[in-house]
Design a protein around this nucleic acid. Sequence first.
DNA 1: TCTCAATAGTGTCAGTGAGACTAGTTTCTA
DNA 2: TAGAAACTAGTCTCACTGACACTATTGAGA
Lengths: 201, 201
Amino acid sequence: MTTPRTGSPLALTVLALLQYRPLHPYGIQRLIRQWGKDKVVNVGQRTSLYRTIDRLTAAGLIGVRETERDQAYPERTVYEITDTGRAVAREWLLDMLAMPKQEFPEFPAALSHLLMLAPQEIRDAFDRRVGTLSEALATLEAEMSAESGHGLPRITMLEAEYLRAVMAAELQWLRSVTDDLRSGNLTWSAADLLAFAEIPE
Amino acid sequence: MTTPRTGSPLALTVLALLQYRPLHPYGIQRLIRQWGKDKVVNVGQRTSLYRTIDRLTAAGLIGVRETERDQAYPERTVYEITDTGRAVAREWLLDMLAMPKQEFPEFPAALSHLLMLAPQEIRDAFDRRVGTLSEALATLEAEMSAESGHGLPRITMLEAEYLRAVMAAELQWLRSVTDDLRSGNLTWSAADLLAFAEIPE
DNA sequence: TCTCAATAGTGTCAGTGAGACTAGTTTCTA
DNA sequence: TAGAAACTAGTCTCACTGACACTATTGAGA
């Protein structure tokens, strides 16, 4: 009956959706996709969804509404949120908004080992990254203008705005670095390497 | 003997450090901290480090050099990288650089549920986030200028540059949103909420 | 008619993250 | 100088995530 220490994105989303109305797991998954929230929570792995639901149930944050049988599909358990669930969701949300969490995305980690590669290889890799990243940015912006054209208020698109801001920053940084690599503005020598590799024991 | 499908930041870092010289696990951990790489790989949890080392050993990417006994401390197993390890590290690195990975940080997920909160609560939460985030940015910039003053070449600070670019973008976005919230430029009504909540079944 | 996609759920494994626990050693300090 | 704190070095468990595969049924399209 203890509430999980930290609300994961998926757990928060489940609680949030159940505040609109009771749903069965598959319905939650569909709704996440329909509302485009699959950009910010990973619902591709249904295992996680079912496990999350189990945990939330065990913690008393959600409960079983009914078990319906559509005589066509497997049994579907419909869940609803509890009062505790409503309160906890608010707490989690406030916490996740106010306190930045140290996360460890893989790109900066990779960046810190560039010395393993030749300059040419780095350029090629960065070029490829710029390519896929700018495509993704274009897609995102298309979706955003489609949605706003559809009359959706801005408050429902803040997460997309944020993603756009961060992606744009990454792209801009990448482009400036590739420029510097190409122009010879960013070079390093074997001597640098050795100096850096002076390992204190 | 199969190489793990995907190289985690930590696994890559272990391989990278062992290219400079053989090390024991604790030495790896210290080196990560000394070189400031603990900003981009999570080495706080030593469990992961030991497990990663076991996996790399099982995969033949690293091997046991020797087992030394300093008669003071527990036994220390010293590992060294293998030729396969060197090759795999390069592959992983190129892959991680070139192909952006879909990751799911919690902040955008939280953003997508702002409708659960009152405008005032959102403002407060954002203000707190701006506070801690700008402190973190200041710290990072201080470290960067210290390092560059210390004569370290730019190539060794690219990950810090990247982090700074992304953090700055997040801060700028946050500030613009809080401004809009305060100025009344970003509002929403119960009607918006209902329209948004029209759930197709 | 056959295949494919969608519906709905289960299972297994690898890996990460947080934390506690053991146990010896050096260093600071009251 | 005794005791506290911090460092060295490693183990263990638990909770959670992510990837992938498997079972079954149904409806739609080629």
